[in-house]
Design a protein around this nucleic acid. Sequence first.
DNA 1: TTTAGAAATATACGGCGTATATTTACAATG
DNA 2: CATTGTAAATATACGCCGTATATTTCTAAA
Lengths: 233, 233
Amino acid sequence: MARPSRTSQMPNLRESIRDVAWRQITESGASSLSLRRIARELGITAPAIYNYFSDRDALVTALIVDAYASFGDCQHEARNAYPGSGWEVDCLRAIGIAYRRWALDHPHRYLLIFGKPVPGYEPPMQEILPVMMRSLGALLATIGELHALGRLEVEGVPLPLLEPAHRFFALMETADEPMLAVYAVAMVIWSRVHGFVSLEITGQLPPFAEKGEALYGFELDSICRQFVRSQDR
Amino acid sequence: MARPSRTSQMPNLRESIRDVAWRQITESGASSLSLRRIARELGITAPAIYNYFSDRDALVTALIVDAYASFGDCQHEARNAYPGSGWEVDCLRAIGIAYRRWALDHPHRYLLIFGKPVPGYEPPMQEILPVMMRSLGALLATIGELHALGRLEVEGVPLPLLEPAHRFFALMETADEPMLAVYAVAMVIWSRVHGFVSLEITGQLPPFAEKGEALYGFELDSICRQFVRSQDR
DNA sequence: TTTAGAAATATACGGCGTATATTTACAATG
DNA sequence: CATTGTAAATATACGCCGTATATTTCTAAA
């Protein structure tokens, strides 16, 4: 009992809105996203968008989920390039390199995910957590394998708290202590990688312009040296 | 009616505008800054602000300079607490701890400086570079001292490019190679510290809520172990 | 053929930054 | 003291924005 009215002229308006939004974001940044501009470009009126997204924040959330999906794909592709055992360190490096590559290729998407996206917007965690955890999954799995092989150096790494009140509790309540150590190491690695990449794509690492890759490689080496024990122990 | 004798009621309107802007930022975030809200709170009309700031971006720039000044003070205070020689490692740690403390105490200022401040705003580098370099100065000086003492481990650290076309060239053209190594190590340390702190203040390190300090301490230890040679070599 | 309801429009409100023209208060000058 | 130039405020207006409300248009099901 509905009306696919525009179906003839504009089949998937919801997807068209998302597409145009992405184009505007990649052209002029996430903060300049405007429902009216999207509508203008699609030849419709602004309130029409409210038939597909309850408000601007809902659209932003959908875009963030998209971005996480693309980012997660890139992470898991890197991981899947090193199947089997014995290549965990190479896999770790590949994930790190893919992380930076994706960020450099999609700086606006990266900032949309990890920065302060749009003025008044606060991301709804229960919608974003799944895609967020999926994209962390590649890193977690690889570190987990290293741990299972006894090659993960975890001495001195503080473990996270697990209180029932915590948002992440549901995800982690079945985790044993080794899993917590894996998680902690992942967080440290993530924070290092994120620090470098976010400075680089916001242009705050200027003297290293063309040498960013070398300095990033140095950081990946540092990570491997610190957290991975050599194969022949 | 036009100009009531405001000079009597409100002597330093320019400073009052900045104060109110800071209050609004610390209360509701940098992105919700609004000239009209500021004017309303001061009992003046919005265009009156244009007598003191040429446009909204000029106000934001002034706020960023303020924030850098406060941040730089915090960094140099930490450094000055360890005068003389022999305490360089403690000094390095103190600077790192002060960095996180300041960010946690002033998250909005931190994001104003290092994040994507306001929608369409692009910071004018020639205004910001001085205060930015000053706040990096504490870290640079301490690492420089370690280097002068032969205690800085720089093996494998890639050096930055120094091309005349570069914005930073004027600052660095007198630098010799050791100075470049010092600069490179400072960038690595900065990116690690920034990565952790920015994730923490944007709430993306959830399971470590109360354990953030411990994990951060672990990172500072990692930095010292990697880049500082023990005193008795 | 009728009709319920989805999807679009028209219109409007209050917010924003800011450009323009106008008015006022004050200080320096004659 | 009177005049006047100017800086600082106001009034007004324009074009953006997100979005709420009411209304129209179309179509699929009854």
